[in-house]
Design a protein around this nucleic acid. Structure first.
Lengths: 330, 330
DNA sequence: GTGAAAGCGCTAACAG
DNA sequence: CTGTTAGCGCTTTCAC
């Protein structure tokens, strides 16, 4: 067991007394060779501590085993969940995930796309449908499978896997309306950045309008979503808008913050105030009063997206279902 | 702006009317060339939609710009936090993160290490000090910077960045003892897998012993940590062990579960029962009663680790401080 | 300041 | 079943 670094296929072949290509075939269990040759190559490789050089392998062969994954953030568990689903499927198929984090910046995304593409990945998974014009052009011209995730409200480039945030927002509104709430507020986070949250809010308002209603008040923090932002946001909207009977939050993090505020202030839920979130996080499910929310298939979207990397079908949209969870906060 | 895919440096050079090596120098702003040459190369590259092939570049040059990062899980926000810190620093330095998730399996880790090493990364960041013998040998023989993260209780291979979980456990125990608690229970998750949680518990018991105490009872779920596991674990220990006055949880997820149980059952905190966690998550900080816990420098560990990738100093241990947070649950 | 030539380590035909 | 021969696309001496 040598140092391993610097040992090449040539060394292994020489040590085993065979040609390079034979050693290569054995090591990749591809093509044919006698079991005797096989044994000696494998033994030589082990003795030398050979670690194949995938960089060279990728360059020599046509396709790479790298897959790029681009997400806007890692601070919200939603994206690690997505990554987790994708990575687990990719790993089993022999792919390596190369990640990029945009910080919700489309220009940063453009740079990341260019950078990831330079590794000649087998495919690219990217959260969201919105891109800069240049990013869009790069993705279209890359000649690899592009999977856009988590959003089906808009046109995709190649494959799209997700659900309709607009419909999720509509469903949330219809639920509150059906429960009898009429003075409904909205507490959200930076919508200019989180485009999917914006689409939910849009769907939410549309459904309210269909029922002849509109949001009775809204507070939109100009920060990323967080429990703290939700707590502070609810405090503000309660100050600014009287007689709210329900509040729709941009996601569960925000909603849990609101829930905590109600607990602190002794605001009765749902009698005095109803709360509704989005995502179906564990913390929302396990709270003393489970939060009413929408469970989104994040891990599943990651898994399904990863599976599509090796598909050769035509562009398509895969819609996964979200599920409305009637908790104890409505 | 062509298809981009398939355009090579040779094409760009021909289009610009210069030699390949000149085009290469311009594109990497390395070496010398006239500003006129520069302009024509850049223009040709843009016109052709050239995307450099880093695979080829890496093979031709010596060093790669890939960095492997291995974590046990993505389900617990702790590791995304670590990744986030590392990735942000790496990105700024022109590196790409290639991730691997072990699912807390050391044999899986070994396979991942071998797989990541085959991409000839510039360095490897790996969570934890424990590895299989073969993994250890591969890491030592890789000839690149190896950074082991989040744990300083043990011997490292090259660089180590983290804090002492044992000391964190001790500090937690001393805090509870100083507050006057004597009948202290432990609610944890699978310690055979989460070695750092095991070290915390070990330090915790050691500090109790120094005060002539021992845990009054313990419940260890054989599942990964979660809010639900913490809630159920607390329910069980309250059944099994009478007169507990405090419970130490393996981490904040578990502790928040316990906190939720207390809220549900109307168990007064901290008078009737004190709770102590570990990690300093946002949800713990924002709860109606902030959880007493230890804030761990996860993002900072990721950042510091990433910075060390390009260092050329001798092996070293970088210890970052954790901070005990006196919340309202003790 | 610039180009020609020689690989980086491997895979993929192709003969044998 | 096995070895030889060309490259993959780029970087890197090294002359010019």
């Amino acid at each position: 067991m040598g140092s391993g670094a610097g040992v090449t296929l040539t060394d292994v072949a020489r040590e085993a007394g065979v040609g390079e290509s034979t050693a290569s075939r054995v090591l990749r269990s591809h093509g044919s060779f006698s079991s005797k040759t096989r044994a000696s190559v494998l033994e030589a490789a082990a003795r030398l501590g050979y670690v194949p050089n995938r960089i060279a392998g990728t360059l020599a062969s046509t396709g790479s085993k790298l897959v790029g994954i681009i997400v806007p953030s890692l601070a919200n568990i939603v994206f690690p969940d997505l990554l987790r689903g994708a990575n687990s499927v990719l790993g089993k198929a022999g792919f390596q995930s190369v990640i990029g984090v945009t910080d919700y910046d489309l220009v940063g995304e453009e740079a990341l796309i260019s950078s990831l593409l330079s590794w000649r990945p087998a495919g690219l998974l990217v959260a969201g449908l919105e891109h800069t014009a240049r990013a869009d052009a790069m993705l279209r011209g890359a000649g690899i499978r592009i999977i856009e995730m988590l959003d089906t409200d808009g046109a995709g480039i190649d494959m799209v896997v997700g659900f309709s945030n607009r419909e999720a927002g509509r469903a949330s509104a219809r639920h509150l309306i059906a429960r009898g709430y009429r003075r409904i507020g909205y507490v959200g986070h930076d919508l200019a950045l989180d485009l999917r949250a914006a689409k939910r809010f849009e769907g939410f308002r549309a459904a309210l309008a269909e029922a002849g209603l509109q949001v009775a008040g809204q507070v939109i923090a100009s920060v990323p979503s967080s429990i703290e932002a939700g707590r502070d946001g609810l405090a503000r909207i309660l100050d600014e808008t009287r007689d709210l009977d329900a509040v729709y939050f941009s996601n569960d993090d925000m909603a849990i913050g609101g829930y905590f505020l109600c607990l602190s202030r002794g605001i009765g839920i749902p009698d005095r105030l109803a709360l509704f979130g989005h995502n179906g996080l564990e913390v929302a499910r396990c709270a003393p009063q489970p939060l009413s929310t929408i469970r989104t298939p994040r891990v599943e979207v990651g898994e399904a997206s990863a599976r599509l990397i090796s598909s050769d079908g035509p562009p398509a949209v895969v819609t996964l279902d979200f599920e409305l969870i009637e908790g104890a906060t409505t």
